[in-house]
Amino acid sequence: MSRHRYFKDKLFKIMVFVFAMAGVAPLFAIISAIAVNGGKTILSVGPGFFYGLPSSPLSSSPGGIGPALVGSLILMFLSTIIGYPLAFMTAVLAVEFPESVFGRFIDVLVKSLLEIPTILIGVLVYSLLVVPTGSFSAWAGAIALAIVILPYIYTHVENSLRSIPADIRLASYSLGLSRAKSIFYVFTCEAKRGLLTAMLIGLARASGETAPLLFTIGGNWFTYFQGLGKPIGAVPLLIYTYTLTPYTNYHEAAWGASLVLLMVYLSLFAVFRRFSKP
């Protein structure tokens, strides 16, 4: 083989690898920056960072993010309670009744929810829920989040149900089990793992989304949970809001909160991975 071809082959391989590494480098840059700066903040404030209240803008201390942390947990929980059953039932509808027009229509509809910018979802929930009730609320945030995470949960459940082998389905029907019984007793058992990881996907998404919360939850940083109809805080929104301020101590708090969010995300991801491998 000519030197020319050999050279081009090698050059191409190097180029591909260089570009590829350039592509993933930012991940490591981000993780290390957050670890370093966030670590600094948390170490300087101590454990009070996790349960304390924010400090005033020009003070030297970053303050705590307690209410936002609790708020995030509540929102994650609420939005999954709303979103998961909805996603599960519609996935069952789409997978087990593919002959029906409605079943196929729903499939297309849910998947196209993915294309709607999340800021729009937040703004629309604002117009439909916040305006009439006159107040930002945890409800509004949870519903906006539920709509955003719905298609992700749906897709995962759908894939899990579809991957049940045909002969298992046949076995269930051979025993004279109806579709309903087959789905709720046999198929869910067989697809157990997929159904659980779908919930993790929903939680992970709900923990990190910011735009749906911008105009729905109001960003309550100073008091802990006051009720579902009242404003509430959340970690991603805190990071966003604090980053936009010009105050250094708030920026430090943002790094600390980012480290918390990063840890939550990576843990959920790790658990998800653990459960996905057979």
Binding site: N37, R205, G208, E209, T210, T243, A254, L262, Y265
Partner: peptide, 15 residues
């Protein structure tokens, strides 16, 4: 990378 919350990308870039 795909699932990393976008606010983290944004704040890292901004700060």
């Amino acid at each position: 990378m795909a699932g990393l919350p976008t606010v983290l990308y944004g704040m890292w870039a901004s700060l």
